[in-house]
Amino acid sequence: MSETKKGPERASVPFRNPGWAGNTGEFDLSEAEVRGDEYVGSRPADGGHPSRAPSYPFMLEDKTPDAPLFEGPYRERYEKILSRYPDMRGALLPVLNLAQELRGHISQETMREVGALLGLSDAYVRGVTTFYTMYNKRPVGRFLIQVCTNVSCNLCGADDVLEAFLENTGTELGETSSDGLFTVMEVECLAACGFPTAVQINSRYYESIGAGDVPGLLEHLRDEGGD
């Protein structure tokens, strides 16, 4: 097939976020088909087959900062993770991920607890946690909005998109809005450079976002959530 025609003008509300270039002509898949939701199906609470357990954690809207590490199905996932690495240290990142899924951020106390579980010192776990940007060192809003401002997106207006998010949520970069809903951050290239601007909201990608799409997208999150 040769080139497709240029798509219709971008709608102001990107709910039909197709997971890639939202406005390309011959594109007639549902959002779930593009994202793979239908294929993946619902996620079993215990993590399913052990091979997937270490990749399981998600960024959830609902966070339980004082949830125990780990009980019930989370305990099962934790044990499946341990079974996939030759030593306890290897399980550190997946276990921190799991803790963050549950609690929403990794506090000093969480670092201590994870260290105790895996037989690693506090200082060691702190050193590792602070190295990686995806561990939230303090609580974040219900929706963690990360806007890519790296070069490919930047060439196509990412600075304006970031500005629109800050303005429409009434928050400062890295801060959480007063209603506790939104935390807006800048993020480095999300590997979706062909579909600028790329934005990650919790665990989900929104692509081909323009500054004009932002109010509608925020409204959608407020009303219907992002999952």
Partner: peptide, 14 residues
């Protein structure tokens, strides 16, 4: 960051 993508791969591994 590839939460969605990783789930697709993980399901396929299963």
């Amino acid at each position: 960051e590839f939460f969605e993508t990783n789930q697709v791969v993980a399901r396929a591994v299963e």
